[in-house]
């Protein structure tokens, strides 16, 4: 095995081009588990933690560009106002030890359906920045996932970071697990309201990939179109229908952590709760928090 430790982004792209089967390594919270358990035995590990560019974030036009190496701990402490759902999800990741190392970029790289960063990135309409020596491209998050733990990343590509617009309205993330902390989501859901514009959703752990609930977004955007300004109470049936459409978008399975029925049910509950909270924030005129 080789251990590659580039110190610049250009070196990293060069290394990945030279060793396309190198396994990129960031916080190690997924990759090192696989190495420790003998599930991954790559020809090379490509450590990206020594690259300063990956650890930065900055506004870029009307979006924020967040490097793949920004840890969950920093997403919480530095970006909670601009990416509240992502910060909320980051708070639920593992423990302080894990949040100090793990990154949303690494979460994308693992492409686990249970990745906590994915639902807020989906709800926030984020794009993933991929780059190789051949050039850079952007992929909408919902198009990034290709299957359980698979993505559209080409063998010579690395994840540079992601771009997302700062929240213009309330955002929420909710997660259910069988333990109070340190838990892999049995199911998770993120909701982003964009007043005057529309709605974003993201579902975790309830399908082969993280999912958006398109029909639910469309339905709710229609219902909210003339309510953004009025800021009046949402009728119960609207909340109920939204929750049904969210649950309907899921493709859950039975596994050790929960049954498909349970996941669908929990999604309904999470969709109701997050919409109720988010709409209340909107009516109060607050920017929303999670």
């Amino acid at each position: 095995m080789r251990f590659l430790r580039p110190h610049t982004w250009a070196e990293a792209l060069g290394a990945k081009a030279e060793f396309p089967d190198a396994l990129p390594l960031m916080g190690g919270t997924d990759v090192m588990v696989d190495v420790n358990f003998g599930r991954a035995r790559p020809n090379a590990l490509l450590d990206l933690t020594a690259i300063p560019e990956l650890r930065t974030w900055a506004p870029d036009g009307d979006a924020l560009r967040v490097g793949a190496g920004v840890t969950y701990a920093r997403l919480v402490s530095e970006l909670a106002d601009r990416l509240p759902a992502l910060a909320a999800a980051s708070r639920t990741v593992g423990s302080p030890q894990i949040r100090n190392r793990g990154t949303a970029g690494g979460n994308l790289g693992s492409a686990s359906p249970a990745g906590d960063a994915h639902p807020p990135l989906l709800a926030g309409g984020a794009e993933v920045e991929l780059e190789s020596v051949r050039g850079a491209r952007r992929v909408a998050v919902e198009e990034f996932f290709a299957g359980p733990k698979r993505s559209v990343l080409e063998p010579d590509e690395l994840i540079a970071g992601f771009r997302a617009r700062p929240a213009t309205g309330p955002q929420y993330f909710a997660k259910v697990g069988t333990r109070n902390a340190m838990v892999i989501a049995v199911c998770s859901f993120a909701l982003a309201l964009r007043p005057g514009e529309g709605v974003g959703t993201g579902i975790g752990s309830a399908g082969p990939t993280p999912l958006r609930a398109y029909a639910a977004e469309e339905f709710l955007a229609g219902e909210l179109a003339d309510r953004w300004e009025k800021r009046d109470a949402l009728p119960g049936p609207v909340i109920g229908e939204f929750a049904e459409l969210v649950a309907g978008a899921a493709r859950p399975i039975d596994d050790v952590r929960g049954t498909a029925d349970y996941r669908a049910h929990v999604l309904r509950v999470l969709a109701r709760r997050t919409l109720t909270w988010a709409w209340a924030d909107h009516c109060e005129g607050g920017a929303g928090c999670a």
Binding site: G27, T29, M32, V33, L45
Partner: peptide, 13 residues
């Protein structure tokens, strides 16, 4: 200066 799980840090890191 930050706490981590040493089992998840590659030696080279």
């Amino acid at each position: 200066g930050t706490v981590v799980c040493a089992c998840l840090v590659a030696a080279g890191q």
